[in-house]
Simulated scan of single mutants.
Amino acid sequence: MSYGFETLAIHAGQEPDPRTGAVIPPIFQTSTYAQDAVGAPRLGYEYSRSSNPTRDSLQECLAALEGARHGLTFASGLAAEDTLIRAVCQPGDHVIIPDDAYGGTFRLFAKVAERWGISWSTAGVSNVDDVRGKVTASTKLIWIETPTNPLLNIGDIAALAGIARDAGALLVVDNTFASPYLQQPLALGADVVVHSTTKYIGGHSDVVGGALLLNDDEVANQLRFHQNAMGAVNGPFDAWLTLRGVKTLAVRMERHCDNAEQVARFLVAHPKVTQVYYPGLVEHPGHEVAVKQMRRFGGMISFRTGDPVEAERICNTTKVFTLAESLGGIESLIEHPGKMTHLSAAGSALEVPADLVRLSVGIETIDDLLADLAQALG
């Protein structure tokens, strides 16, 4: 029997505890496990870096939500990304990344993977021809975000999957902004989905984590080996907190989207705002693709003011929107990407506009959010 998204979020990998009947699976806060005999661990559990029942529950749940056969979780989104790179790439391989990638992803490729012998190029994820033109004989990964962070560009996952197949490469989709509730890249042809579970999946700004979801058995085995060998796993309490958060993902995302749509319309009409980036707007260049592959358009909005000083002033003036990095929590956040989340890209081809403001629209009362932006914009 197949189940709906909300049912899977609450039940997949989360059967009541068989010993006590506890409805919520327990936190297995242990580092090691008693064995019945030498080389005979119970249920395969030996050491919690290698496997832990709470982490297994989270991995099973996230795989179900993304329609994947395999799920692996990590200590952070970047830990997941690093494990993927080292599991599938070798020195001499080439990777294509977005030309407006998340600053941490850019830093990982430019400052870490490049020193290990991985070359990389940038391409606009919304420009299929640009991506195709950057493919080389050594391209191993086509790595996209859709929507991108922070400019909310939209990549056509199905079209880019075709390019990756033709090149003998893997299409990796960072699905953090959309969450599995709004978009399921594997069903559109992607090979691997990446999440910072810190964001919408956890949803409460109280736990850091990452995940990789995929269907390929061979690649999954490589990833499991590296997950254990490199050891950047999430602890059982972090896994439990993330499971707690994911149960309400569907209802939270609906409210994030409701609020963000109203905020986007408010910003479009405001005289001090020169440009709004939100794929739910019909004038957004990626709107038609977003309609095709997303359930709704998410809670992330970026906008420009035409003046870097004014952009910083707005960030420093809000009262309900908290000035902070990260995104995807129940509370609304505001930030200046150029000096905060994307500072690592300063001076590079991925540098973001200095007058850009990014909003993570939370689930507060919408009238309070609009009033706060109105007073901050002045």
Rank of each mutant, 00 (worst) to 15 (best):
E15T: 09
A34V: 15
E325T: 15
L377W: 10
L359F: 08
A22N: 13
T32M: 12
T122E: 14
G245F: 10
V320F: 11
T20M: 01
L377E: 08
D100G: 06
A167V: 09
G133T: 06
T20D: 01
L243R: 14
T139N: 07
A169R: 02
A250F: 02
E66C: 13
S76T: 15
E6K: 12
A158Q: 10
R255A: 05
Y3V: 05
G13E: 12
A178D: 10
A345D: 08
Q183F: 15
E310R: 15
T83C: 15
M253V: 09
V291C: 14
E288V: 08
P91N: 10
G338P: 00
A37Q: 12
V38N: 05
K140E: 02
Q293D: 03
A269N: 15
L171F: 02
L369W: 04
E81Q: 13
N215S: 15
G202C: 08
G203W: 14
I97G: 02
G39V: 11
E261V: 12
P91L: 09
A159H: 03
A211C: 13
D174A: 00
Q375N: 11
R295W: 06
L108Q: 06
S121D: 13
G329H: 03
A110Y: 04
V38I: 09
R42L: 15
L84M: 13
H70W: 08
T139Y: 07
T20A: 00
L267V: 07
L350K: 02
I301F: 13
R358S: 14
S51I: 11
G77S: 05
A113P: 00
A169E: 03
A178E: 04
N149H: 13
P91C: 10
Y33F: 14
A311I: 13
D17T: 11
L171T: 01
G280S: 11
L65V: 08
R265M: 11
I10H: 08
A376C: 06
S51A: 15
G162D: 14
G124Q: 01
F321Q: 08
P98C: 11
L188D: 08
T317A: 14
A187F: 00
G92Y: 02
E60K: 13
T7Y: 14
G306S: 06
D99P: 01
G347C: 08
R19V: 12
I366N: 14
F28Q: 03
V23W: 03
I301W: 11
R304Q: 12
A123I: 06
I201H: 02
P271V: 11
R132H: 13
Q14C: 04
E66F: 15
G71C: 05
G202Q: 11
T242A: 05
Y200T: 00
V207F: 05
H336Q: 12
V263L: 12
K199W: 01
V173L: 04
I366Y: 09
D367G: 00
R244N: 07
T318M: 04
G124M: 02
H94M: 09
E15C: 02
P150E: 10
L62E: 04
I27D: 10
D216W: 06
A164G: 07
L241I: 08
D82K: 07
G378P: 02
V112W: 09
A113F: 00
P25Q: 12
T73R: 04
Q184R: 14
E310S: 12
L212C: 07
